[in-house]
């Protein structure tokens, strides 16, 4: 554990708490992408199968369970609970059909694992989750773009999620310098870089709007 990784994890936790606060305070899921939440749930469930096979630490196991539970709860809220359910507008959240995200990532993961000779289902699903995570934020970014004016807490949610990814890049730099037995995984680095790059545009408008104290409005 290093400071960047811990700060990244905490930023991730904060983003989820902000999202829950956002849903509860406005009593609506307008501006929130259910698709992104569902993609994140697929990511967590496929990546954290090692909960059953490998014990890293209490912290690690606790966080994994917390991510799965909180994301499941958020999806349940938007899908089945009033008033979120009736206010959720699926037509605003139409970009990127789940299967068009899942299928290419599954194919790529299978290919990557065949090349590396990692043939256990847990390894393949772990690699799949690395690729899918990079795409998971895309529907949310499109929902923001559709409404253009980003509600405060929704903006903070995406900001903390992006900060988490940025801090993980610093974590990999740190680990490759200071951990003797750290093995580079270029697939993790490349999809992590792609994922972080997706946030850059949002970050720019977020920081500018905070600096000038105005509302966060995205350009058309």
């Amino acid at each position: 554990m290093n400071i960047f990784r811990f700060a990244g994890d905490m930023s991730h936790v904060v983003s989820i708490l902000v999202l829950l606060l956002r849903l509860r305070s406005s009593k609506s899921a307008v501006g929130i992408s259910l698709k992104t939440q569902e993609l994140f749930l697929i990511v967590f469930v496929t990546r954290y199968l090692d909960l059953f096979t490998t014990f890293y630490s209490l912290y690690n196991s606790f966080m994994k369970v917390a991510y799965i539970a909180s994301t499941t709860y958020i999806i349940w809220m938007i899908r089945f609970q009033e008033p979120y359910k009736s206010k959720y507008d699926a037509s605003q959240d139409s970009f990127l059909h789940i299967k068009f995200a899942v299928a290419p990532c599954a194919g790529l993961a299978l290919f990557a694992c065949l090349v590396k000779g990692e043939l256990s289902p847990i390894d393949i699903l772990w690699t799949f989750s690395i690729f899918l995570e990079a795409l998971a934020i895309v529907p949310q970014l499109f929902v923001l773009q559709r409404y253009r004016e980003v509600e405060n807490l929704t903006g903070h949610y995406v900001f903390f999620l992006g900060a988490y990814r940025g801090l993980y890049i610093l974590n990999w730099v740190y680990r490759s310098y200071y951990e003797q037995f750290y093995r580079h995984n270029w697939l993790v680095y490349v999809s992590g870089a792609v994922q972080t790059a997706l946030y850059v545009d949002f970050f720019y408008y977020y920081v500018v709007s905070k600096y000038y104290g105005g509302k966060l409005t995205l350009p058309t």
Binding site: H12, T54, M63, W126, Y168, E179, F181, Y182, H184, V188
Partner: peptide, 10 residues
Amino acid sequence: ADADEAKDEL
């Protein structure tokens, strides 16, 4: 402890 390719990360 040795780490296996970031698999101990969240």
